[in-house]
Design a protein around this nucleic acid. Structure first.
Lengths: 249, 249
DNA sequence: CGTAGGCTTGAAAAGCGTCAATAGGAGTGG
DNA sequence: CCACTCCTATTGACGCTTTTCAAGCCTACG
């Protein structure tokens, strides 16, 4: 039987921390889905809406965000290829946050019921989904600590380190230690609980310290990984990656 | 067969958002476990340690926390009766945070493998565990928004609202709209990303505005729920409770 | 070649942190 | 039963990080 490989990134994500049998992988690939292209700035999920599908990121970048009473926005997570962005919103009844595409993104929409069925029929897949949720929780806790207890310089450096590592795992960091970060400084501000102005000053300071270099405004190049990680108080433990993961030095 | 009811709070937590069959509930209650008393200030889990058990809170209060490079601490979650405090640390290989008892607490230690086995043998229980993790993630995201985008007054009020609602569900809020909050102001500071001094000033301000009253330093009484929720920019949506949950007005 | 969105920079204000000193309360030992 | 100690709460004064407001600048794109 010929089989679409569209959902391969999902299979890879789920098999990352757990062995999945060939049958389990095949069952994942067989999930019914519709591929959609979401334009930059458009929403995949709106806070308080009822979601019926789970979005798998195939390409592009998206963020989850919440809006507080003053109208200010907080980005609570950033997602990239292979991430399932709204298991939360699908399994829980009502969305507690919005999901927005930062760049034009390709996503696969998978009906919520199919995910649940798969998890029940194939416990190992269910466990992999659960694990994925646990890792997301771990990242979220690190963000709480980052925003709550680190100063601006450390906070930004930490975020840049996190992106470097997560993109590296996906093969999206170039040999010259450079990656694309298609976020505006206002979006970085929303992700770190700062203002755009202060993000600007902080990034420029990191740059003048030669901890990072920006070939263009939406790309980050680090010169000395260890130095950046030090400044960012960064330890990848919370990402729960394999120890064999190639380092960034 | 006579059966221990020690794990009843766990069964109740898991059955809260999902129907569980009598067999499922019985299987939960049958989980092997050891009840332990953890003294105030003692740790149940240490960051970077390998945990082999999951802790179910039977009484008392505990917090998860992380320590950043400067030595400052951030509390990333607070747990009470019925919460399973380290599914994370058990299922993932290495603990990414510590868990500490705020008050002398009774906990049931359940071997990690038994939890996994149960989830695999009983998909509905597995799904309930997953759901519980998803709700925790939702709370964590709200904390990110709370710390990142709300000012001190709003932030503290929001935290007090969250405790009121979560304790209310467990029947731990008295008729006179009062509950025990056995956290020192330093701990509240660690939970909100503030300093103890500023927590003190903020709480005192809320008090002088008559939004809250403190019969003693470790108890909170709210006079007008709606007013407090307004100041705290609080909407319980993110807790994913039943709509039929009795209100706090 | 003009416009819009994002970047950059300056100046001033504000919120929150730091330092420091005092007070209160619970537990302990004499 | 009192003195002592430790921990927490409280308050003042001061300073610094970050925000706010505002203005220009750059660059991509129509």
């Amino acid at each position: 039987m010929t089989q679409s490989l569209t959902l391969e990134p999902m299979a890879r994500t789920l098999a990352y921390r757990l062995n999945l049998s060939a049958e389990d992988r095949a069952a994942i690939l067989r999930l019914p889905h519709a591929v959609k292209t979401i334009e930059r700035g458009h929403y995949m999920v709106r806070e308080r809406a009822r979601a019926t599908h789970t979005c798998l990121m195939l390409s592009g970048l998206s963020v989850r965000s919440k809006v507080v009473g003053t109208g200010h926005r907080q980005i609570v997570a950033v997602h990239m290829k292979g991430d399932m962005v709204d298991l939360q919103n699908s399994l829980l009844q009502v969305a507690d946050h919005s999901v927005e595409a930062l760049t034009t993104s390709k996503v696969a929409m998978i009906p919520r019921d199919e995910i649940i069925r798969l998890a029940e029929e194939r416990p190992q897949v269910g466990r992999a989904l659960w694990l994925d949720t646990l890792v997301e929780g771990s990242i979220s806790r690190e963000w709480v600590a980052n925003i709550g207890r680190r100063d601006a310089r450390t906070r930004i450096a930490h975020l840049l380190c996190e992106f470097a590592v997560r993109l590296r795992v996906r093969g999206l960091v170039l040999d010259d230690r450079q990656y694309e970060l298609p976020m505006t400084q206002e979006q970085i501000a929303d992700a770190t609980g700062m203002t755009a102005v202060h993000v600007n000053r902080t990034i420029r300071a990191l740059e003048s310290e030669e901890l990072i270099h920006r070939p263009h405004p939406r790309a980050i190049q680090y010169r000395d990984w260890r130095a950046l990680a030090e400044v960012g108080d960064f330890d990848s433990n919370y990402l729960h990656l394999h120890e064999s993961e190639p380092s960034l030095h």
